[in-house]
């Protein structure tokens, strides 16, 4: 029963349709509504977001980088967020996109790892399995039209094999030796490819770190949703390790020469 008398016997809206010219199917519905219909909400847009994640293959395994910022639109809302997370003994996941969806996925993966641990069957999930599982979750949710709004890089090292792959909110997957999500795919990836492709088995840890640092710097200069605080993760035969937050040394002396920013008034 519609309890609002204003809706009774008013199949049309005088403001838009004073002469009742709209065909019946196009008129607003004033009948009873499902009280909980509005309660079912799906992610239609990301809210608190992380920007690019970078990852490359190098001699000893995989190296990844992501900054510590979670933005609320253009507001730099949280400046101490970890976007790189270890899953099990062989894998690190780097997330961009919606941070609440990322936290949900972290807890879901942790549950999965506990389930695997308790079975005590002598099999541990490696990066390939975790990426496959994650891509099923992501593709499943997009198919329900209720996506988890993220792009992920999954890096790992198990049984002497390096692994690096991507998955996003559409369930799209791919693999390469240098990868980047979001803005980084436009700005940093060309630099990464030049530095890495063909040299995957030669790059040392120091060199790999330098490449990523350089790219994070370029991103900080050019990506307005980035931060000069970031972390680096390595996944090698020794397992995953995620660094403490580090600062980028940036130089702004050139800004003096920019009209409207520096000393000049004209």
């Amino acid at each position: 029963m519609d309890h609002f008398p204003t809706n009774w016997g008013r199949p049309r809206n005088d403001a838009y349709d004073s002469y009742g010219t709209y065909p019946i199917p196009h008129r607003p519905y004033n009948g009873p509504k499902d009280a909980f219909g509005e309660g079912v909400q799906r992610t239609q847009q990301p809210i608190v977001t992380g920007t690019s994640v970078l990852a490359i293959k190098y001699k000893d395994g995989i190296m990844m980088a992501a900054d510590n910022l979670a933005s609320y639109g253009s507001l730099a809302r949280f400046k101490d967020v970890q976007r790189l997370t270890a899953v099990g003994e062989f894998t690190v996941i780097g997330a961009s996109g919606d941070m609440s969806d990322f936290q949900y996925i972290q807890s879901m993966l942790d549950d999965k790892m506990v389930e695997e641990f308790t079975s005590q069957d002598g099999h541990a999930l490696g990066p390939a399995e975790i990426h496959e599982y994650l891509s099923f979750i992501m593709y499943g949710r997009r198919t329900k039209m209720d996506p988890l709004w993220n792009s992920f890089l999954v890096g790992g090292f198990k049984e002497g094999q390096r692994f690096l792959a991507y998955v996003d909110l559409l369930g799209t997957t791919y693999s390469a030796s240098a990868m980047a999500t979001g803005y980084g795919a436009h700005i940093a990836l060309p630099l990464l490819r030049t530095a890495v492709e063909g040299k995957e088995n030669l790059l040392t840890e120091e060199q790999a770190q330098k490449i990523l640092e350089e790219c994070m710097k370029v991103l900080f200069y050019r990506d307005a949703r980035s931060l000069n605080k970031y972390q680096i993760a390595t996944i090698t035969a020794a397992g995953p390790s995620i660094s403490e937050s580090r600062e980028l040394a940036t130089s702004w002396s050139f800004a003096e020469g920019i009209r409207g920013y520096g000393a000049q008034t004209q």
């Binding site: 809206n13 838009y16 607003p28 239609q44 847009q45 997009r142 198919t143």
Partner: peptide
């Protein structure tokens, strides 16, 4: 008519 009365929502493209 609904589109005139209500604001349009951008929909997720799968």
């Amino acid at each position: 008519m609904d589109s005139l009365v209500n604001p349009q929502q951008r929909q997720f493209n799968p």
